[in-house]
Design a protein around this nucleic acid. Structure first.
Ligand SMILES: [Zn+2]
Ligand SMILES: [Zn+2]
Ligand SMILES: [Zn+2]
Ligand SMILES: [Zn+2]
Lengths: 135, 135
DNA sequence: ATAAACCTTGGAGTATAGTCTAGAGTCAAG
DNA sequence: CTTGACTCTAGACTATACTCCAAGGTTTAT
C-alpha cells in the first residue's frame, strides 16, 4: 500500500496530478487510512504508466478514460473494438495534421512574397495580404 | 460611424467577439455616443478583416496583437521585421507539425500491431503496449 | 514534546478564444 | 407611449490539463 507521495514519485507525476486524475475518474485509490490518507496498490503504478504513455501517444485524458474502460473490460471487448478506437484517433490526428500543413503553406506563401529588406514596411506584401485576403 | 451590431454583421463576427477583442486591445472604437454606444469607423472593418485572415493563417490573438502593432507603426518598421515575425511563426508551426507526425506514427504502429479480430482483447497488443511502453 | 514532512479539502489561477446570461439603459417606429 | 430591437456592463461558463494556495490534520523523527 502506497501513500500518495510514494506513488507520485514512483510514477513520476505530482501528487496534485494524482488527485486531479482521481477527480476525473482515472485512478481511484481502493482504500483510505482511518485519517483519510489515500492508499494505492502496485497495480496503480501500472495504471499510471498506462495513462502517461497514452498521453505521450497523443490521447487526451478523456480518451484515456475510455481506453481504461476498454482495459478493465477487456474480456468483454474484442481486438476490433480497441483497434477501432485507435484508428478513429488516427483519423482525428490526420485532420489536425492537414490543418496545420495548410497553415504552414499559407505562412510560407506570405513569407516568400516579402522582400525582407530594410525599407519601411509601408508596402510590405505580408501586411498587404492580411488586409486584402478576407474578401 | 457604425454601431457594434452594424460592424459585427459587416465583418461577420459577433458583437460579443468585438467586445472581447476590445478587452484584449485589438480594436478599440474611436468614439462613443453620449449614451455610451461604441462607434466604429470604416477602417475598423478592415482591421477586423485583418484579424480574421490572420487567424485563418494560424496566428493567435496575441500574435495578431503584435502584428497589428507592426501594421500601425509600419513606417517605422522594415519588411525585415515583418518577415522575421512570420518566419518565427513558421518555425513554431513546424515544430507542432513534427510533434503531431510523431504522434501519428506512434498510433499507426500501435494499430498495425493489433490483429483487429473478434476475440476478446485480453491479449491485445495495443493495450499491452500502453502498459509496457512507459519503462 | 515539538518540529518537519506529509496528508486532507476546496477553490483559485493559467492559457486560448470566445459564448451566454442578467439586469438595465437607449432608440426608432407604430 | 409602448413595444421591439439594440446596446451597455460584469461576470459566469465552455474545454484541456494541470498547478498552486490556504488552513488545517497526521505521522515521523529527533
Ligand atoms: Zn519589402
Ligand atoms: Zn514585406
Ligand atoms: Zn488481437
Ligand atoms: Zn488488439
Amino acid at each position: 500500500m502506497l501513500k500518495i507521495g510514494e506513488l507520485a514519485s514512483l510514477a513520476g507525476v505530482s501528487r496534485d496530478t494524482l488527485r486531479f486524475y482521481e477527480k476525473h475518474g482515472l485512478i481511484i485509490p481502493n482504500q483510505r487510512t482511518e485519517s483519510g490518507y489515500r492508499l494505492y496498490s502496485n497495480i496503480d503504478v501500472e495504471r499510471i504508466s498506462f495513462i502517461v504513455s497514452a498521453k505521450e501517444v497523443g490521447f487526451t485524458l478523456n480518451e484515456i478514460h475510455q481506453l481504461l474502460e476498454l482495459e478493465v473490460t477487456k474480456d468483454k471487448k474484442s481486438c476490433q473494438d480497441v483497434k477501432e478506437f485507435v484508428d478513429n484517433k488516427i483519423t482525428i490526428v490526420n485532420q489536425r495534421l492537414l490543418e496545420i500543413e495548410k497553415i504552414k503553406h499559407s505562412l510560407q506563401t506570405l513569407s516568400d512574397a516579402c522582400c525582407g529588406g530594410d525599407e519601411p514596411a509601408t508596402q510590405c506584401t505580408i501586411l498587404g495580404a492580411l488586409n486584402e485576403q478576407a474578401r
